[in-house]
Amino acid sequence: MIRYILKRLWHSGILAIVMSLIVFFGLYVVGDPVEMLSDDEFTEQDKIDLAIELGLDKPLFEQYFTYAGGMLQGDFGTSFVHNRPVLELILERLPATIEISLLAMIIGLSIGIPLGIFSGIKNNSRASKIISFFTTVGYSTPNFWQAIILIMVFAVFLQWLPASGRGLTNSMFGIEWAWLSLNGLQHMALPAINLAIYKICMQQRLAKSGTQEILYQEYMTFARAKGISRNRIIRRHLLRNILIPIVTITGLEVGGLIAFSTVTETIFSWPGIGKLLLDSIHMIDRPVVVAYLILITMMFVFINFVVDVMYAFLDPRIRHQK
């Protein structure tokens, strides 16, 4: 088990370094920041000065090490647009993203998985077919289109819920949160539902196919032959086995949530890091883009690591791997 964790940790480290290299070189080498920052009035000399100012005259690896060194000390550079340290900017926006992603996750899991297991067990029932049809429609509808429909229905026609902004925030542990007030919760509702719909559909489909695959394993029939009651078989044999693929997928989907939050946050003007990324891309605010991508990468690497460890915890066959 310890060896397995160490091995995963080692893989994660490599992955983190490679990803940061790709992001760094992709943004600083393939694209030319000087071209992007300069406009038509810049003279050649201005451009050279700018390059020196940005440290672009130094060899590539030196630039990377300078950047990586700064990063390790929490220095991700300064935003061109906001003229503030990037890390500060990101940390300020992070809670907003965390709270809607988490809410969407909770909604997605608590509705999607039970629906999936139900429709897996009662595969041929009418209810299962209806559920499956709706989830197919759900995940066939692009996220942004769902958002538009939600806004039109709940904000424009019914006028039940606000369609943009974060509303009132309250402080907890020194961080501003929206979910602590009713107004904040109302503002959270639409973006969170927008993110959750896709989650629900995905989880339903995965849980359904997982359930069906496990139902047809021989140990399920053997459990019945042992005289175990149906409920207990579902509770114990089915759930324990189905947990494995679900945990894996859920972990990976956290990444998907963060990714899709860029779309949702942009449409609902939710002041999270996703909106920050998109705004920065549009305004060519490179330090923010680089920092965002590197931080997100580290986060994915960490999530993957946690998933692998949980996987081993749930599946004894991997736990005992030599």
Partner: peptide, 28 residues
């Protein structure tokens, strides 16, 4: 199914060909 449940294991036992697939891999 309920009547069968009280019969299975209790009155009539069953043994499968392949014990490796008959036992659930994630339970002790």
């Amino acid at each position: 199914e309920a009547q069968f449940e009280s019969l299975r294991g209790n009155q009539i036992g069953y043994i499968y060909q392949n014990p490796m697939t008959a036992l659930n891999p994630v339970l002790t």
